[in-house]
Design a protein around this nucleic acid. Structure first.
Length: 432
RNA sequence: GGAGGAUUGGCCGAGCGGCCUAAGGCGCACGAUUGGAAAUCGUGUUGGGGCAACACCCCUCACGGGUUCGAAUCCCGUAUCCUCCGCCA
């Protein structure tokens, strides 16, 4: 969420930057709403001050032995004031709601070095790392491989839950666990992240703080019991970022670096027919997420740091990938700059998104009330960043496809062996 | 699901209708003192908002309502925590 005043100070600059992501900012409307709120608050404050004085006069008069008529007259005046306060308060509430409703749906300002455009095709490639493997045969996709080995079962998943679910079995399930354990060990051990095991169900307020609500409710699964309403997290970014909502963090503790392996639930509304095959796009998948909270002015540097941590995952696994910088109009609502990491998928003969690392600047922090304070009491703004490091399913798909051999077996990246307990999965699903 | 109890500023803790602009203590910050420190003394110290303004004003004693001229204080509701009973992985 933006600060109305800052947005107005930026003025035409804000209009220009938001226009790059296709949002038309009505500066005059914002200005009007903002000053309507300010003058409404001013009026209420004045009336309240008067009301306090009036109440004090009643007490003074009663104590000094004034006649009851005099006291009653004073009370009557105080009562009238209270009526006027009530009316003025209604106006404040209406003015604040109007302003807040507008501010909540204005997306973050894209950074100037996010390329122009509004689609994946407008992204700029930053670098390629690793060589896509050359096969002396036609590589199979992860669905063929996984089903043949008996480690993935889409038919039974559909029986249980319908479309867009998967079941991992035997070495497949073990491989998921191994990948997640490897990532967590890497981030907590070498990259300095603190691991969390947070709730997977959160309140609407939490979802609003991180920006999923009110605009993107249709992307979420919603549940509840009795009169309690909860949402299933679409990513651990939500609970990890919200951990410090409405808190003032000691500046010397920054940057905070948090990680968590959680299931993620997404309705995938609007993606009908896309990636229907395999484990690339599911209603439920699991992911190791990275979140960093830092001083506002550090966010850009922190983004590069976090991107490096996500890339390390792929480098350690020996998977070929590339990094792209997303176009201004293609980034998520919260982001001011986003790098995507795309892993090579032989079956599709292309790079496919496996991680999204975003600098949200102060946008999310302001929205969820995260601030900082230095040793001298000086208050500061903080920035939030989040990135996948990495999703388990897509990583597994990339491993199966990039590490497959002609006989239908898959040789795991060496780093996974200690976690999986095996080095190869043979065509018949046995391991060695 | 049921019965009790609790919730005050960074922390502890007073307060039970107007003098709460929240006592006192701890912690912290700044200053004095000192060769330097400890101790001591002094000053400051919740967080938001209106405003050009560190002036002034408003809000904030878990949260939301209500009673009253006036609420930390009285009433109702909600949340969270604690104790006990029931059920349960």
């Amino acid at each position: 969420m933006h600060d109305a005043r800052l947005l107005l100070e930026l003025g035409d600059e804000a209009v220009r930057r938001l226009d790059r992501r296709g949002y038309k900012l009505d500066l005059a409307g914002l200005e009007a709403m903002s000053s309507r709120r300010a003058s409404a608050i001013g009026r209420v404050d004045e009336l309240r001050a008067e009301s306090k004085r009036a109440a004090a006069e009643v007490g003074k008069a009663a104590k000094s032995g004034a006649s009851s008529e005099e006291v009653d007259a004073l009370k009557e005046r105080a009562r009238e004031l209270k009526e006027r306060i009530r009316e003025a308060e209604d106006e404040v509430e209406a003015a604040e709601a109007a302003l807040r409703d507008l501010l909540l749906v204005i997306p973050n300002l894209p950074a100037d070095d996010a390329p122009d455009g509004d689609s994946e095709d407008d992204a700029v490639e930053v670098r390629r790392v690793g060589e896509p493997p050359a096969f002396g045969f036609t590589p199979r996709d992860h669905v063929d491989l996984g089903e043949a080995m008996g480690i993935l079962d889409f038919g039974r998943a559909a029986k249980l839950s319908g479309a867009r679910f998967s079941i991992a079995r035997g070495p497949g399930a073990a491989l998921e666990r191994a990948i997640a354990s490897f990532f967590l060990a890497l981030h907590t051990g070498r990259h300095g992240y603190t691991e969390f095991s947070p709730p997977y169900l959160v309140t609407g307020q939490t979802m609003t703080g991180t920006g999923q609500l009110p605009k993107f409710e249709e992307d979420l699964f919603r549940t509840g019991t009795g009169d309690r309403d909860l949402y299933l997290i679409p990513t651990a970014e939500v609970p990890l970022t919200a951990l410090h909502a409405d808190e003032i963090l000691p500046a010397e503790t920054l940057p905070l670096a948090y990680t968590s392996w959680t299931p993620c639930f997404r309705s995938e509304a609007g993606s009908y027919g896309r990636d229907t095959r395999g484990i690339l796009r599911l209603h439920q998948f699991s992911k190791v997420e990275l979140v960093r909270i830092c001083a506002a002015e550090e966010s850009r540097r922190e983004l590069e740091v976090m991107l490096g941590h996500a890339e390390t995952c792929l480098q350690e696994l020996g998977l070929a990938y590339r990094v792209i910088r997303l176009a201004a109009g293609d980034m998520g609502f919260n982001a001011q700059l986003t790098y995507d990491i795309e892993v090579w998928l032989p079956s599709q003969d292309t790079y496919r998104e496996i991680s999204s690392c975003s600098d949200c600047g102060t946008f999310q922090a302001r929205r969820s009330g995260i601030r900082s304070k230095d040793a001298h009491g000086g208050r500061g703004q903080v920035a939030t960043l989040n990135g996948s490091g990495l999703p388990i399913g897509r990583t597994m798909a990339a491993i199966l496809e990039q590490c497959q051999e002609q006989d239908g077996s898959v040789t795991l990246p060496e780093v996974l062996a200690p976690y999986a307990g095996f080095r190869r999965i043979l065509a018949d699903g046995t391991t060695e």
